[in-house]
Structure formats: C-alpha cells, structure tokens
Design a protein around this nucleic acid. Structure first.
Lengths: 129, 129
DNA sequence: TATAGTAGGTACCTACAGGAAAGTGACTAC
DNA sequence: GTAGTCACTTTCCTGTAGGTACCTACTATA
C-alpha cells in the first residue's frame, strides 16, 4: 500500500534476483575485460586494447569506468610522460572468480547441447499455433 | 597463420570462455523468464506476461522463441478454443539452477558493496589523468 | 450485437549502444 | 621539425533492441 503503479519499472528486478547482477557483470564487453584482468593480472590500457580484439578505445574506456565505479576494477594513474595507467581486478571483482569458473564449466558441458537444439529447431521445430 | 584478419570478430569469445554463455542466458528479459519457469513451474503466455511486469507481448514472444530454439524452454501447444500454450523449463534449462543460485548468493553478499563503491566513486572517485 | 479472453503477428517509431575516425597534450627520439 | 607513444576524448554515424498500437480467428457469455 502507498506505492504508486510506477513501481512496475523495478518489478522485474524484484521478481528475479539474478537481474541486478546481470546489469553489473554481464553487459557487453565486461566479461572479457574482467576475465583478462582476473586471468592475466594487471594491464595497461593499450595492453587491454590489444588483448580484447575488436574493442574500440571509446568503448573500452566506458566499460572500464563503469567497472571502476562498481568497485570491480582498480585504476592507478602514474603521472609520467607518456602517461601510464594500470588496471587490476579488485577483491570484489575477484570474488566473481568461482562464478566465472562455474559458467565456464556449464559452457563446456552444455554449449554443444544448445547448438544441437538450434539445429533441431531450425530443421523441424517451427512453432505450431 | 593461414587465417584472415576477419577472425578478429570472434576473438573476444575465444579470449573469454564466459562470453558465449552470456549471449545465450543473460540477454535482456531472459533471466526473469527462466527464473519464473524454474521457480514457479509451468506457465501459460498470459501468466508469464502478468508475472514479469513491464514486458510487452512482442518481446515476450521473441525471448520465448529464442529460449525454445536454444533448448532451454519447452513449448506445448493445445489446439483448443481459445488456444492454450504452455511453457516449461527443459532439463537443459534446469541445469542452470545451481548457476542461478550461485548468482543470487553473490548478489546477496556483494550488491551492497557495489552500491557503496558507486557512492564513493560519485563523491570523490573521479579519475585523475 | 457486443464484449471479453487467448496467443500471438505486424507495422511503425525512437532511443541508445556501439563503431569509425580524427584530435589532444606533453614529452622523447630521430 | 617531424613522427611516435599513451590514454584517452570528441564527433559523427548506423544498427538494432525494444516500445506502442493495432490486428487476427474463434468461441462463450450477456
């Protein structure tokens, strides 16, 4: 009682406890960044740019800022010439490690089944109705 | 060697084993749908539409078709009048259960830290450089 | 006759994410 | 004096996800 109907906007998050994590961790380009920092340690900007093939500097900056704001990544600026900036994963970011391992494990066990289901659907599975 | 530079497109997925799962499971609206079917069992179309507040029928159809194609959801059509369609989670979808529990657990333990980090960043953490 | 309920389909529109390309500042090396 | 390095920033442009609104066929009910 007392709440207006505009709460509907946030209802999906209330109804599904996974959604808030998705917004933080699983938006585009964030998992490759976190994965790189978690697996290979500290990186400079260009090192990330080269490792994560296809990302543009603009988007890399955006994602790194977001991850820094969310406390998953730590940025260290060294006022030298040329400037040097280092990114590393934080303790909070590192706490995602088991989750990523779990996801990788699921992928290894089930991605094949997904592709098989897709082939089956594309061949015969058109929805009737 | 021998591969053209166009491979760069798929490199992020090669570099990060989590990315392929993200495309399948964590696109917008998919986790609320899977969560509802996993937690509350079989649903008719309108039941899902009402439970997942804010989703439009068009998008609900799109997501359900995608999930059906990927083998995570099973659709059963009953040729009655009015038509009746039931959606339930598949074994493959159910195998995501522990993963979702893990994500929920992480959310409970760390979402507060993320919000705290955001407040700190917004107050004092503007990047220097 | 009119309305409601079911499971969507379709046409149209907009907002925003993301890509391409060039610029910036401070310094060094050639 | 010209080019190169680093870590971005800025501008411009496009693709697409997602929203709005209306439509279908069929029947039961009032």
């Amino acid at each position: 009682m007392g709440r207006a109907a505009t709460d509907a906007t946030s209802d999906p998050e209330l109804a599904c406890p996974v959604s808030p994590v998705v917004d933080i961790v699983f938006s585009r380009w964030t998992t490759p960044i976190l994965w790189a920092l978690h697996t290979f340690g500290r990186h400079r900007f260009v090192e990330l740019e080269r490792r994560i093939t296809g990302i543009t500097p603009k988007v890399l900056t955006q994602r790194l800022r977001q991850l820094e704001r969310d406390g998953l990544v730590v940025r260290t600026y060294h006022p030298e010439v040329p400037p040097r900036v280092e990114y590393e994963i934080s303790d909070l970011g590192r706490s995602l490690g088991p989750l990523f391992a779990h996801l990788t494990e699921w992928a290894g066990a089930n991605l094949g089944k997904v592709e098989q289901a897709r082939r089956h659907y594309d061949d015969t599975g058109a929805p009737r109705g």
